[in-house]
Simulated scan of single mutants.
Amino acid sequence: MSEPMIPSPSDAVKPLIRPATRADDNDLAELARDTWSPLHAVHPRAEPPYAPFFDDKYPPEEILVAEVDGRIAGFIRLLGPSHLAANAHVRLIQGLAVAGWSRGRGVARALLRAAMDDARRQGAVRITLRVLGHNAPARALYASEGFGVEGVLPGEFFLDGKYVDDVLMGRTLAP
C-alpha cells in the first residue's frame, strides 16, 4: 500500500480571496458540514434539516471566501468581538474552514492573512481568536502568523468524552 501524498510547499496555490455573497450560502453550508470535526467544533454535528449558513447573526459581510480553480476552498469569519465602542479597535476570527481537497496548499494561511488585512482596513489594531487546546495544527498556523497565547480556560469544553481547554490567542496588527 502506498503512503498518502503529503503536499509540499511547491503545491501551495494562490487562492482568490473575496467577500462572501448570499449566493455562496449553500456551498458554505456544505463546506461547514463537510469539515465538521471534534478537533475544532464545540457544537454537535449538524443534522437535517440543515439551517442556512447565513442568518441575522452571521451575514455574508463577515465572511471571506477562498476560491481555487473556481471552487470554494475555504472561508474565514471576521467580526467585532462585541457591540461596545471600547473594543471597536479589535476584530475576532470566529471560524476558519478549509475543504479537504485543498488542505496543505496554503489556503488557510491565505485566508488568515486576508482577514488580518481586512481587519486593518476596518481600523483594527488587534485581532483575536479562540482555538481548542487539542487543535495542534491550527495553533501552529496561528503561532506562525504572530498570534500568541493570551489565556487558557482549562477544561472549558467537554468534547468527545474529554475535557478540552479553550485557548485565547491574539496579536497586534501593525499598519
Results as ranks from 00 to 15, higher is better:
136 A>T: 08
104 G>L: 05
58 Y>K: 11
122 Q>M: 13
21 T>W: 01
141 L>M: 10
76 I>R: 01
152 V>N: 15
160 D>C: 06
5 M>H: 14
73 A>T: 09
32 A>G: 06
24 D>S: 14
35 T>P: 01
174 A>V: 14
35 T>M: 04
149 V>T: 11
106 G>W: 00
136 A>Q: 11
135 N>E: 00
78 L>I: 15
18 R>F: 09
150 E>W: 12
73 A>L: 10
80 G>K: 15
142 Y>V: 13
6 I>T: 12
134 H>Y: 02
87 N>C: 11
146 G>M: 06
80 G>P: 06
28 L>I: 04
135 N>Y: 03
107 V>L: 08
141 L>Q: 03
69 D>W: 01
93 I>A: 01
79 L>C: 12
128 T>L: 11
42 V>S: 00
33 R>W: 10
38 P>K: 13
80 G>C: 05
102 S>L: 07
72 I>K: 03
58 Y>V: 07
54 F>Y: 06
77 R>A: 12
136 A>P: 05
40 H>F: 14
130 R>P: 01
152 V>M: 15
143 A>C: 10
164 V>C: 07
168 L>T: 04
148 G>D: 06
110 A>C: 13
61 E>D: 14
7 P>I: 00
80 G>W: 04
77 R>C: 12
84 L>N: 15
66 A>D: 11
120 R>V: 14
115 A>T: 08
32 A>I: 06
59 P>M: 05
167 V>N: 07
150 E>K: 12
37 S>P: 04
173 L>E: 11
73 A>P: 12
138 A>C: 14
98 V>R: 05
37 S>Y: 02
123 G>N: 09
157 F>G: 02
22 R>K: 14
12 A>C: 09
119 A>R: 02
39 L>K: 04
142 Y>H: 05
174 A>I: 14
51 A>F: 05
21 T>D: 03
59 P>L: 09
13 V>E: 06
150 E>T: 09
36 W>E: 05
76 I>Q: 00
161 G>I: 04
142 Y>S: 07
42 V>E: 02
90 V>P: 00
7 P>Y: 02
135 N>V: 07
102 S>P: 11
4 P>T: 02
85 A>D: 12
173 L>V: 14
25 D>F: 13
128 T>C: 08
48 P>C: 10
34 D>L: 14
90 V>M: 08
141 L>D: 01
78 L>D: 02
97 A>R: 12
7 P>N: 09
152 V>P: 15
92 L>H: 06
130 R>L: 12
118 D>T: 15
57 K>C: 01
129 L>R: 02
70 G>Y: 10
42 V>F: 00
62 E>T: 10
87 N>G: 03
151 G>S: 13
174 A>Y: 03
161 G>T: 06
88 A>T: 06
29 A>I: 08
48 P>H: 12
79 L>P: 00
143 A>K: 13
39 L>N: 02
138 A>K: 08
48 P>Y: 12
149 V>G: 05
76 I>A: 00
76 I>K: 00
27 D>Q: 12
116 M>Q: 11
172 T>E: 13
152 V>S: 15
69 D>I: 00
13 V>M: 10
131 V>Y: 00
118 D>Q: 15
128 T>F: 08
32 A>P: 06
151 G>R: 13
41 A>Y: 08
159 L>G: 03
170 G>R: 03
4 P>H: 01
168 L>K: 07
25 D>K: 13
35 T>S: 10
128 T>W: 02
127 I>Y: 05
132 L>G: 02
44 P>F: 04
50 Y>N: 06
17 I>M: 01
139 R>Y: 05
7 P>E: 09
58 Y>S: 04
